[in-house]
């Protein structure tokens, strides 16, 4: 099977204007993934499905990933001259990498029995309205899984035929799989509270009221 590096130039030739990156993967199995911009992901997906060498007709897994804002610390060495003596010092620079949401697709071929090719698309930011594109028109199997991505991560997948909540109930607020999700304070009376339950109980039942 072709490696992502081999697929990339063919994709760029077939889908003009598509921004495609190959993301590294340091784990021993090392499945590198193709990062495609949301504007071209539908055309890229169609190409991957219909290309006679790839024939990725089976979209096995669809999932979301939440990457919150993080501070990336990068160290680099710098030569400074102090009192005429050259010395090397290490300097740390902190840069804020703004967060984004990501959709990951694991594609296999049932016809040619190879895979996986990992396809990713990223939203611009972690806003609920940040768009991504649904691939349900290409692979029907994405339908429920993309609904789940919408339900738990809040990625609005444009072009999905029936984008509703699937596991949580209608009217639920928030997206539980996000890293910054805070569960609601649904405290119930506890006769012998302890540890964090005690902390929570103090908010609900002030001790002086009881006595």
């Amino acid at each position: 099977m072709e490696t992502p590096e081999q697929i990339k130039p063919r994709l760029e030739a077939a889908v003009p204007g598509a921004k495609i990156d190959v993301l590294p993967n340091d784990c021993p199995a090392g499945e590198r993934s193709l990062l495609v911009d949301p504007a071209h992901v539908l055309a890229v997906a169609k190409f991957l499905r219909d290309d006679p060498q790839l024939r990725l007709d089976f979209c096995s897994n669809v999932t979301g990933v939440d990457w919150p804002d993080i501070v990336v610390k990068s160290k680099f060495k710098k030569t400074v001259v102090v009192d005429g003596v050259e010395s090397e010092i290490e300097e740390t620079i902190e840069t804020l990498r703004s967060g984004y949401l990501e959709c990951v697709y694991h594609l296999y071929s049932m016809e040619l029995k190879h895979g996986p090719v990992v396809l990713r698309q990223r939203t611009v930011n972690r806003d609920h309205e940040a768009p991504a594109v649904s691939l349900t028109p290409v692979w029907r199997g994405c339908e429920f899984q993309e609904r789940e991505v919408y339900d738990l991560y809040g990625i609005r997948l444009e072009g999905h035929p029936d984008l509703r909540r699937i596991l949580m109930w209608d009217g639920f607020k928030g997206f539980p799989m996000r890293k910054d999700y805070v569960p609601p304070d649904d405290f119930e009376y506890e006769p012998t509270p302890h540890d964090e339950v005690l902390e929570q109980a103090k908010k609900h039942y002030p001790p002086e009221v009881k006595a």
């Binding site: 340091d26 784990c27 999932t63």
Partner: peptide
């Protein structure tokens, strides 16, 4: 485990059971 990601799958009785992990 070191940073990275993996998708593993087996043929469970009901179909393809997969796990996707990012470390």
């Amino acid at each position: 485990p070191k940073a990275g990601e993996a998708y593993g799958r087996i043929e469970a009785p009901k179909g393809e059971l997969g796990f996707y992990l990012i470390s």
